[in-house]
Amino acid sequence: MSESIPSPHEHIVFTEFDDTEGVLVDLNSKRYYTLNETAMIIWRGLERKRTRTEIIRDITDAYDVTPEHAAQSLDKLVATLRARKLLPADGGQ
């Protein structure tokens, strides 16, 4: 898995309900998705163009989890976001 993760598409709007739940709205497909607390940390990292290593550190700083486990969870979520076309398939916009 490469260090660089693509930033979210411009047409995906993220709204944070509170610290525990957020919503992504795809303005093109007119569909929305909910994110749990951990997924929100990852999405915020993607929006801020943080590297994979930095996002893993964000997760391990906040949660009782090993870097290896956090990395696996990050990669799995990124794959899901790509499958739902919420992230570009490769680096860049």
């Binding site: 795809d26 007119k30 998705y33 909910t34 994110l35 949660y63 969870s73 990050l74 739902r84």
Partner: peptide
């Protein structure tokens, strides 16, 4: 040792905005 227990990150299945409204 104060960190929160880890919960796997989850993105829900898509919901059609028009259906919801």
């Amino acid at each position: 040792a104060d960190k929160k227990p880890f919960v796997e990150p989850v993105v829900s299945v898509p919901v059609d905005v028009l259906e919801a409204t």
